[in-house]
């Protein structure tokens, strides 16, 4: 079982690295969206500092959302998803492997590039660690919950907008707590509660979302 997990994870990573330019796209999108805000609102440090946590978190959320397609779509179209579903390994484990790969390829880079954006948005230095930690706890949830949405819409043509419609409301708690943690940390206060909440949601999503995704795949992707 573990072997199947690693195998699939390695396969997905290998496939992704084969098309390296595509790999960077969500990351560039993330930086680009954040860059739009100083241009649209004001370049003044006071304004940007207030908006920073929200802007960075919303951008992260959108860039994960746009990258969700590659979680199952291609596998569905070329038939390898059918193969996965026929394999003797539990589908939950395979789903988990795919979500892990997705997070390593999109969530983790977002976490790593976040300090740069924090600098763009004048986030105080002491809050940068919290920003990274909140993204580290939050983005896996985005991938996990997103996987449910993608698996439900995998057979729908042009399901992009539909996917956002069904997934974004479910992202709201993460957005609230993630952005608030950064906000509170900028004021130099403790963010223990927010981090515990994000951790708890991560644990919940980690245990339930792959199950829901597996059920959803059996419903929508079986031909």
């Amino acid at each position: 079982m573990l072997k199947a997990f690693y195998h699939l994870l390695a396969r997905d990573l290998r496939l992704a690295f084969r098309s390296r330019h595509e790999l960077a796209n969500p990351l560039i999108f993330f930086v680009l969206v954040v860059t739009l805000f100083p241009l649209a609102v004001s370049p003044s440090a006071e304004v940007l500092r207030v908006m920073a946590p929200g802007v960075i978190w919303v951008s992260a959320l959108l860039s994960v959302l746009l990258s969700l397609d590659r979680l199952f779509k291609q596998d569905y179209e070329d038939g390898s998803l059918d193969q996965l579903m026929l394999s003797p390994n539990p589908l939950v484990i395979l789903v988990l492997a795919k979500v892990c790969a997705h997070w390593l390829l999109t969530g983790l880079p977002l976490v790593l590039v976040a300090p740069l954006l924090a600098m763009f948005m004048y986030v105080p230095d002491e809050a940068i660690g919290v920003l990274m930690l909140s993204l580290l706890l939050g983005t896996p949830v985005l991938s996990l919950v997103g996987a449910i949405g993608v698996s439900l819409t995998v057979a729908v043509n042009r399901g992009g907008v539909l996917l956002s419609l069904i997934i974004l409301p479910l992202y709201i708690p993460i957005l609230i707590f993630g952005a608030n943690a950064v906000d509170v940390a900028s004021d130099g206060m403790s963010v223990r509660g927010q981090m515990l909440f994000l951790g708890a949601v991560l644990a919940l999503a980690l245990s339930l979302a792959p199950l829901a995704t597996a059920v959803a795949l059996r419903i929508t992707a079986s031909r």
Partner: peptide, 14 residues
């Protein structure tokens, strides 16, 4: 239906 159930799990958290 599955989406509705996922929504119900999420409603208390939201």
């Amino acid at each position: 239906g599955l989406l509705a159930i996922v929504g119900v799990v999420n409603i208390p958290i939201i």
